[in-house]
Every structure is written in structure tokens, then in C-alpha cells.
Simulated assay, not measured.
Amino acid sequence: MEKLLLLHSLREVRQLLPSYFNLYQAILHRIRHQNFGVVELAEGGDLSRCVVRLRQRKPELWTVGEIRQIAEALNLPVAVCIKLEAELNRMGEALLVQPSRMYVSLLRVCGLHRLRSRVRLGDRWSYTDLYRLYQGTADERLLRQPPEN
């Protein structure tokens, strides 16, 4: 039963990711072309200036929660972030009850680190890790329901 919950969650996350990636790109585009400063982004997104400076240098580190906060400040739709956060939480809970062999093999296929993903909440996933998850689950065989015994 737990494996079915995990597979369902993975499918849901995989379906939401293209929309999230589009929102992410739209936000980066708007930030670049409207010359938002560190102070404006920090205040608008309720983030520290240090975090904003780091994210400007390494945009792949923006997390789902931070993208949601910036999208709200820029009056962009945030529904995909909210849905993605909820599904990532469900997926994380389902992963925790999996046998360690299956858990490790899924993370290995996706190129993710075991320790970091165990403690990550739905809004703490970076763009890089979400993209790895998306690529790692591209093989439909991974997302198929297991045969009933």
C-alpha cells in the first residue's frame, strides 16, 4: 500500500514540475529584465538580503517556498507552488515508510542525496534537485504500479 502511495505521489509531482519550471523561468526573466535589487526582492519575498544575493549568483538554489514568495510579491500565480509543496510533502512521507533498499535506489536513479532528502520539507526543494527528480523519473517503468502478488 505504501508503495502505491509513493508511486501516486511521484506521478503527481512529475506532472506538476513542468508548470513549476515555467513559473521559475518567468520569475528569473522578470527579475533580470526589471532590474529588481536585493532590497526589493528581500522585502517583497520576505527573505534575507544574504539569501537573495546568493540566489542571484546561483539561481538554481531557489527553493519552492522562495519562488512562491517571490511570485506572490510579483503578482504571479502561485497555485502550482502550493500544489507542488503539498505533493512533495506527501512524497516525502511515503518515502520515509519505504524499505531502505527501494528508497536508496529511487534516490540513486534521481541523483539525490539520501540524508538531505530525508529531512527536506515540501517547500525546501531546490530547482536543481527537482530537475534531477524530474529527469530520474522520466523512465515510465519506474512509475508503473507493481504487479499484485
Rank of each mutant, 00 (worst) to 15 (best):
R11E: 09
Q15M: 11
L16V: 07
P18F: 00
Y20C: 01
F21P: 08
Y24M: 02
I27W: 01
H29R: 11
I31E: 09
H33C: 09
Q34R: 10
A42G: 06
G44A: 01
D46F: 10
L47P: 05
C50N: 11
C50M: 13
V52P: 02
K58Y: 11
P59I: 02
P59S: 04
E60K: 06
L61E: 11
L61Q: 10
W62V: 02
E66W: 03
A71W: 00
E72I: 05
A73C: 05
N75R: 07
V78K: 04
A79Q: 10
V80A: 03
L84S: 09
L84M: 06
E87R: 12
L88P: 09
L88R: 07
L88Q: 09
M91F: 09
A94Y: 02
A94I: 03
L95C: 14
M102K: 12
M102F: 12
V104R: 07
S105P: 12
L106A: 05
L106S: 12
R108A: 14
V109D: 14
C110A: 11
G111D: 03
G111K: 06
H113Q: 15
S117V: 13
R118P: 05
V119K: 15
L121N: 14
T128A: 13
Y134N: 12
Q135W: 06
Q135I: 06
G136I: 00
T137A: 04
T137E: 05
